[in-house]
Design a protein around this nucleic acid. Structure first.
Length: 154
DNA sequence: GCCAACGTTGGC
DNA sequence: GCCAACGTTGGC
């Protein structure tokens, strides 16, 4: 069992969008970074814990708890010429971009980026490091425990 | 294989 | 809108 933090722009897919989706599950389309893809393709297992993070928005932060809901499969937007995620070098025979489905477990009162920064326990979190832009990062069990047990308001 | 130029991310 | 940081591209 591993833990992950996955960024989504709420303008594109928010926690509420995911909650209202069938089975409260959304395909994590649009990742176009090899490291992040490799985490989904090679690192994730069904049932892994996910922190659903809102980025590039008014109040960035963790908006929900989720889990990996399935095994990796090709991201269809790479084949769609009208999609902003279209990749001319990808083919159905040899897809470049893979994704997983993510199921929301629960929406939480936002744990803001500022709140994450305030916690010394989280000083080593990848997302808090200078210049980090990776949209998917591993979260340590200690970080997961601290966030889910101490930072989420009841 | 190097590396400069360019594009993107994402908080502020 | 700014800009730091970093990934990608492409010429050599």
């Amino acid at each position: 069992m591993q833990y992950w933090l996955m960024k989504s722009e709420p303008g594109e897919v928010s926690i509420d969008d995911a909650l209202s989706a069938p089975k409260q599950t959304v395909p994590w389309f649009g990742v176009r970074n090899y490291q992040a893809r490799n985490f989904m393709r090679d690192g994730m297992r069904v049932g892994d814990g996910v922190l659903f993070y809102h980025s590039s928005c008014e109040e960035p932060g963790i908006a929900g708890i989720a889990e990996v809901a399935g095994t990796p499969y090709p991201d269809d937007t790479q084949f769609d010429k009208r999609s902003k995620y279209y990749d001319a070098k990808a083919t159905r025979e040899e897809p470049r971009w893979m994704m997983v489905d993510v199921r929301i477990v629960k929406k939480i009162p936002l744990v803001s980026l500022a709140a994450l920064r305030e916690a010394p326990e989280l000083a080593d979190m990848q997302i808090l490091k200078r210049g980090n832009r990776l949209s998917i990062t591993p979260v340590s069990p200690a970080e997961w425990r601290f966030i889910t047990q101490k930072l989420i308001k009841k």
